[in-house]
Design a binder for these strands. Structure first.
Lengths: 138, 138
DNA sequence: ATGAATGCAAAAACTTTGCATGACG
DNA sequence: CGTCATGCAAAGTTTTTGCATTCAT
């Protein structure tokens, strides 16, 4: 189960909504149902689970989680942001354009090269976002 | 100047708003002012130029341009989408998180590695999206 | 002339905020 | 108990849509 100590560590009081939201993210991930949920997704899932949490709270809590590094926010297409638990390290995404399936991966060579490129321009890397849109090879 | 034939080719009637928007994108790019403009940016620029185009039209036209491949839409951080002319080939982006300045780049090593990774998973690359969020090195 | 495109205003979609109430430590 | 968190509703943003009018061909 997701540790409540994670919340304390982040300086966040252990409240019911926060615990529920964290569990929700964790459990959907376990079931591999949907690794990336929008605020609305989380809200609906909570409602269906009989948990009475306001949508505004879901937004607030997800934003706090992001600030605390518990969760990562992605802006894949447009429209809405999606969130995923940050607990299994950094990774990039491959999206199968035919099925919308999301595959995670990491590649050292790319990571390294990114830092080099940025340095060559006199910057330092704060974060990055790489999405490969793919299709099954025929 | 931007060719109106581009519009015809795309099956779009050559109307004043469409021509103006295309020119606006082209001219800001020429002046290197801002390669990436939001719908609002385009709208304001048109207003300042004395062109009377509705914001809704700007959105509609940019969406059509995107569908026609004349323009590329990016969803960098969140909030709003930005558009750029598609005429100068593929490139990735670096966003300075302190100034929001956008720097374009391409890197063969990364491009190559992406194809390899995708192939290793049994897919083929359709498209990709790489954004590096950077900060000036101190 | 005729269908497509525009402008306006209204609505939709997503997210944030103010404020009174309620819960955590 | 004091403070922080929540819920609700209202407001903010960004983008889309309905509809009457105007324009391109």
């Amino acid at each position: 189960m997701v540790e409540n100590s994670e919340l304390r560590k982040a300086g966040l009081k252990v409240t019911l909504p926060r615990v529920k939201i964290l569990q929700m993210l964790d459990s959907t991930e376990q079931r591999n149902a949907q690794r990336h949920m929008s605020a609305e997704d989380v809200y609906k899932a909570l409602m269906e689970a009989g948990e009475d949490v306001g949508l505004a709270t879901v937004y607030r809590v997800l934003t706090q989680f992001e600030a605390a590094g518990l969760v990562v926010r992605h802006n894949f297409d447009g429209g809405h942001a999606v969130f995923e638990l940050a607990d299994n390290g950094h990774h990039d995404h491959m999206v199968n354009v035919e099925t919308s399936e999301v595959i995670e991966f990491t590649d050292e060579a790319i990571e390294r090269r990114q830092k080099e490129i940025v340095a060559e321009h006199g910057y330092e890397l704060v974060d990055h976002n790489l999405v490969l849109y793919v299709r099954k090879k025929k």
